[in-house]
Design a protein around this nucleic acid. Structure first.
Lengths: 336, 336
DNA sequence: TCGCTGCTTGCACAGCTGTGCACGATGCTG
DNA sequence: CAGCATCGTGCACAGCTGTGCAAGCAGCGA
């Protein structure tokens, strides 16, 4: 190690080694700039020798665009969320951007601190996947001209792009499907998270039932998790008048619900009990579940996000996308 | 919008509004710097009014330390990997760093391009979770003084920090546990990924069996996934002499293996078949599986990584950590 | 009152890059 | 051969911050 100080080579050093000006080096690595083939060769040769890599911090400083897109999520290890994140990370890379991931769970003070990173690093855009970031921060993002993309949040903000899955349609379709399968006593298993998209699905399901003159037993337990489904099943099947058609607001909940229904209460699915989920997580396709569920097109969603995050010009205020979510029929709803 | 140009406020503007020098602003946001209470108040008031946020790009440029830690992974949506990533992201945030996530799957050319981002952004450290980044890039990282932390890779490099789970011990414990449970015909279900840690577990299990004078049926199928387990079961149970004690190299594989064994071949677990996994993913605890498996302490692992990524001074060359992984007994191994 | 000490504060520089502008060289055309 | 367009190249500036250094100022002891 003969250079303990300057670990990274700078464009200046490359220029000296190649015998050209620093501008030439910069232009070599700027697509569309005017450089002769001769000097380009020499610059690339020199930069390879020195292991030169353009410093994106300095480039971002000058261009007012860091190339960073922030993804903020809570519970980013949940199956659906992690799939979405992975797809986004991949798509962003393809588009020449890079993803910075922030966890917004935990004490709100620390989440607040974390979210400020998106401003500190001058992210080109911020994508809010879940969780409830303080409104004040969202306001701050908007005031600073931060491009903000909210997924599945029906909040009313003037400015950010909104992309939502059609929760309303899904809730109604879920009810009709269960009804068509011959179910009579309906239930809804949810969590206490109170996310806009969860609430919308709940409301749509219940409304649709009321239109048909039917009641729905609703149970909400803790976080949106496997355990929430287990607890939901215990509540519904311990009391009298157990349901035979259940909409679980999430696949994770559905898995817990089905496991408890089968192993604790000995119920047969779909013979005695029909179940529908939402998300189409990987486990929904596993042989132990074969869950009939709504399957959002995550790739299309990610593509749309990247498009919004990348497109520089148009700041169409208060843009809204609504994506329809098809129902995938597997084996947890009785065939009529 | 009265400032279409300069979206973000700079320290200079804050200084002007507060009637102090720009240095004072800088010092206000630098812990341990010398500022009077009077000016600090005025600076903070002004910066709140302007929505000022320190530009970490410029700060990183000057300090030669960006505050960014890169996490590179393949298949980052697999349950174990996503849990590890989430834990790392969280721990890094607590330590005042921020995580940049890179996907190294896909065509090697694009992965190569993605990995260069860690150099472009002058990351303080790079953590390789999985996948097989080209050796040339690792070399480049090291040459540039990049702090590199390899997890579960037994590669021989002089320089990077290595943290590994004790695959060897796990493989041996798995065999002994199955043997003690009375199993006679052993099998190993793995993937074709050929990751160092997988290979080490395989070898240890087979070696231990050979020491006892027993043979092991080994099957490897595709990627490390649920399907790999399904295919493994089909192979092992379609041929004659089916096994009664199986070590699945991963929980994901174990889930697929168990589902196929039960639903396609009607086998009872653990009565006719004992299964052990590795990773202790969330699904391993679900009622449908209740899998006996090895449970790495992800939180401790993450803490160690953060410690290595943060500690500035000591560059103890070629450091190696080996973490023991306890076996969690659930219900998939017969009680003797 | 004088000298010394300690705390603040401003100046100026460094850190690395992208790009407008001017200038020189080169090739093409009449 | 002259004039012009084209292309490549270097200079210098901007973008934003952290910090060493020197200077100013107040306080305190003799």
């Amino acid at each position: 190690m003969d250079k303990p100080r300057k670990a990274f080579a700078s464009a200046k050093q490359v220029a000296e080694l190649a015998g050209v000006s620093r501008s030439a080096v910069s232009r070599t690595f700027t697509p569309g700039a005017s450089v002769s083939e001769e000097t380009r060769k020499r610059v690339i040769s020199a930069s390879d020798k020195l292991g030169y890599h353009v410093n994106h911090l300095a480039r971002g400083l000058l261009r007012q665009s860091s190339g960073i897109v922030c993804l903020v999520a809570a519970d980013s290890d949940a199956p659906y969320t992690s799939r979405l994140i992975r797809t986004l990370v991949h798509s962003l890379q393809q588009a020449g951007k890079v993803a910075m991931v922030l966890e917004s769970s935990g004490p709100s003070e620390s989440a607040d601190h974390a979210l400020r990173q998106t401003l500190n690093y001058r992210a080109d855009a911020t994508v809010v996947l879940s969780g409830t970031p303080p409104q004040s921060l969202i306001r701050t993002c908007l005031d600073n001209g931060q491009r903000l993309i909210l997924i599945n949040r029906a909040d009313q903000f003037s400015g950010p792009h909104n992309i939502s899955l059609d929760s309303r349609g899904a809730g109604r379709t879920a009810f009709r499907t269960l009804q068509d399968a011959g179910c009579r006593r309906f239930a809804l298993v949810s969590s206490e998270a109170g996310t806009p998209s969860l609430m919308a699905r709940e409301r749509a399901f219940v409304e649709c039932a009321e239109e048909q003159g039917t009641e729905v037993a609703v149970t909400r337990n803790g976080r949106t998790s496997y355990e929430a489904g287990v607890l939901g099943a215990r509540r519904l099947f311990s009391a009298g008048d157990p349901p035979d058609g259940v909409f679980c607001i999430t696949d994770l909940i559905a898995c817990g619900f089905m496991d408890a229904a089968r192993h604790e209460f000995g119920l047969a699915i779909p013979e005695q009990l029909s179940v529908i989920g939402f998300d189409d997580i990987e486990q929904a396709g596993w042989a132990s579940y074969r869950l009939t569920t709504f399957s959002p097109d995550v790739v299309a969603l990610a593509a749309r996000v990247v498009e919004l995050a990348t497109k520089a010009g148009e700041t169409e205020e208060n843009h809204r996308d609504l994506i329809e979510v098809p129902l995938v029929m597997r084996d947890t709803v009785r065939q009529s």
